[in-house]
Simulated scan of single mutants.
Amino acid sequence: MAFPTSLNSQITDSITQVNTKVLGDAPAMAMGNLFVTTSQALSNAAHNATNNQQQSYVTMQASTAQAVATLLTVDTASTGMATHKIY
């Protein structure tokens, strides 16, 4: 200490050392928090992309099934109209 106080010098030295350690650990803690936050954001982005891809596949499958059903019923409808005129 620079000047004498009523506290024990060992106490003030230990508190000073603890405060120095906390200040020294702060950048590492900040970077650790940044890395965790960034990894969580990237994980959410990957999960959202996977989910969107799965949902688009379901939509494409439904539209394909509807298109095939439409193509198959066009022939049946025209055949039905042609046979209706015959009978």
Rank of each mutant, 00 (worst) to 15 (best):
L7S: 09
T5D: 03
A77N: 14
A41N: 05
Y87S: 12
S9H: 11
T83H: 10
N51L: 07
L72I: 03
L34V: 02
K21G: 11
M81V: 04
S9F: 03
I11Q: 01
T73A: 11
A69C: 05
Q61F: 04
S78Q: 15
L34A: 14
T12Q: 06
N19Y: 07
A41E: 12
Y87K: 10
L42C: 06
Q40G: 01
L23C: 05
T20W: 02
A30N: 10
N52Y: 03
A41Y: 07
L71C: 09
A45P: 02
A45M: 06
V18A: 06
S78Y: 12
A67C: 01
S9G: 04
T5S: 00
N48R: 06
A77D: 14
M29S: 14
F35V: 10
D13M: 10
I11G: 00
S43R: 05
Y87F: 11
A65M: 10
A26W: 09
A46K: 08
N8A: 06
S39L: 09
T79C: 00
Y57G: 14
T59S: 04
M31L: 13
F35I: 13
A62Q: 03
A82K: 05
T50N: 09
H84E: 04
N51H: 10
L34M: 11
A49D: 10
T79I: 00
V36G: 03
L42H: 11
L23E: 09
M1V: 01
Q54R: 15
N52F: 11
F3K: 13
S43D: 03
S9Y: 08
V68Q: 08
A26Q: 12
I86M: 07
T79Y: 05
S56C: 11
Q10N: 12
P27W: 02
A28T: 06
A77H: 10
T76A: 14
A62S: 01
G32K: 13
P27V: 04
G32M: 05
S43Y: 04
M1N: 03
G24L: 12
T76I: 12
M60P: 00
T20L: 02
V68G: 01
L23Y: 13
M31S: 13
A49Q: 06
S78M: 04
V22D: 08
S14P: 00
A28Y: 14
V18P: 02
Q53F: 09
T12G: 01
M31D: 14
Q10H: 04
P4S: 09
P27C: 07
M1W: 10
D25L: 14
D25I: 13
T59R: 05
K21S: 05
T64M: 13
I11N: 02
V74A: 09
L71G: 05
S39A: 13
T83M: 05
M29E: 15
M29C: 15
T64A: 15
M1D: 05
M81L: 12
K85W: 02
S6W: 06
Q17S: 13
L23N: 12
A46I: 01
D25P: 03
A82D: 05
